[in-house]
Each structure stands twice: as structure tokens, then as C-alpha cells.
Simulated scan of single mutants.
Amino acid sequence: MRKRGLDTGAHLLAGGCVAVPVARGLRVCTDGRRIWWVVWDSQRRGEPLLAMHITVEGAADHLLKHLAVIERRQAAEVLHLPV
């Protein structure tokens, strides 16, 4: 993520997993083999979307797409506009 301009810190969780907060409402977890996160997507009628990758590059590319959506939503919330 640093290669893509995001400076994040890591937090050790129980069971040896690590969590990395990426944005408000978006935390990425890993167990050293898999990388996953949950996105609350309004297009799915409030149901969570679980994303999982086994490569750092794949996860980073997918996360950047999710971040773009989150940033648009947060900007719309500030302006009180529908997304």
C-alpha cells in the first residue's frame, strides 16, 4: 500500500492475525497466507461483501478500487448528496 501512497500501521490480533486500518470503516486482515476485508456495500442492500486475496498485489489493486468508492461515499455524506 505504501507503493501506492497509503501509509498505514499494523495491529497484532489474537491468533497471530494482523489488522491494518486503511480508511474509516475499512480494516484489512491477514493471517500471513490470505488477505481479506469486509465492505458494507449499499448496492448489495446493506449486506457485507467479503473480499479475499492470496497476493499482496491483487489485494492492493482491489483495495484501491474499494477506497475510491468509499471516498466518493464519504464526500457525498459531507455534502448530503445521494451516491
Rank of each mutant, 00 (worst) to 15 (best):
R44V: 11
A59M: 10
S42K: 04
D61C: 03
H62M: 15
P21N: 04
A60D: 08
K65A: 02
V83N: 12
P48M: 13
G25P: 03
V22A: 09
R34D: 00
Q74P: 08
L67Q: 04
H66W: 05
L49V: 15
V28P: 04
G58W: 10
H11V: 15
M1W: 06
V18W: 00
H11A: 15
V28I: 09
H62Y: 14
H66Y: 05
R45V: 13
A23G: 07
R24V: 14
R27W: 06
T55V: 10
R34F: 00
H11M: 15
A14T: 14
H53V: 00
W40F: 03
Q74Y: 03
R45Y: 05
K3A: 05
L67Y: 00
R72W: 02
W37M: 09
S42Y: 04
R4C: 11
R33K: 05
V22D: 05
E71D: 13
T30H: 03
G16H: 01
W36E: 01
R24N: 07
A75W: 14
D7N: 13
R33I: 07
L50P: 00
A68R: 12
H66E: 06
E71N: 14
R45E: 05
Q43P: 06
I70M: 04
A19N: 02
R33W: 07
L79H: 12
V83C: 10
I35Q: 00
R45L: 12
G9D: 12
V69H: 03
I35R: 03
E77P: 03
L26Q: 09
C29R: 14
D7P: 11
Q74W: 08
V28E: 01
H66K: 07
V18L: 02
I54S: 13
P82N: 07
A75M: 13
E57K: 13
